[in-house]
Nucleic acid binder design. Sequence first.
DNA 1: GTGATGTGCAACCATCTAGTTGCACACCGA
DNA 2: TCGGTGTGCAACTAGATGGTTGCACATCAC
Lengths: 113, 113
Amino acid sequence: MSVPDLPTMCAALSDPTRWELLTRLGQGAMSASALARVLPVSRQAIGKHLEVLREVGLVESEQRGREVVYLVVGARLSSLARELDRIGRSWESGLLRIKQLAEQPDQDPPPLP
Amino acid sequence: MSVPDLPTMCAALSDPTRWELLTRLGQGAMSASALARVLPVSRQAIGKHLEVLREVGLVESEQRGREVVYLVVGARLSSLARELDRIGRSWESGLLRIKQLAEQPDQDPPPLP
DNA sequence: GTGATGTGCAACCATCTAGTTGCACACCGA
DNA sequence: TCGGTGTGCAACTAGATGGTTGCACATCAC
């Protein structure tokens, strides 16, 4: 899996059903069929959701006997969080800089060389 | 604006055009028309995107003369980041706990009262 | 072996969404 | 006063998406 860009990562997290899947998997690995038994969605739909999550690295799959169980990858979510925080801070500091400029009226104008 | 849930916040961030808007606004407040001048998208489409971002609190709007300028709210993204990180960590610790349990075979079984 | 269970793949459908165009109206400046 | 610019609202379209059903096939347990 190549590292997905931010919009793709966020798109994977934009569906309530996928959050439900992630939350369940957060309590322990499960197969698609097992998830379909406890959720009001077909096994095939769940399979598609898990594939989306796997593509962005939020879950990993593992063959166990004849079934395929999925494990959540919390570190992936945390690394996304770090990146979002970094960007959010940069926006804030940028606005701060501009606000400071606006609050210095006609003071110390840059000399034209 | 009521606080939006995680899927809704992530959905707002799942579109490349909206990230483009946020990035531009990160360098300074702009109006929808000004954004439309520098992006290959119509002013109306940009207006819809900005409305989506405003609903989840990622931008704020401000009347300036006859135009409406939009400002990015970096703190909103950072607070989302904190929440995602918290969840990611909880998943990791949960898996760790289960892994530890699995690695203690038939040891210290709980007494039945 | 045989039935039950789990998986994979494909076709199909309804709805959401990101984009467009078009028009009406407000307002600023020369 | 009048042209240019900015905004708001509505209608429409193509494609993405989340969901379904159906079927074929592998595999585990009895």
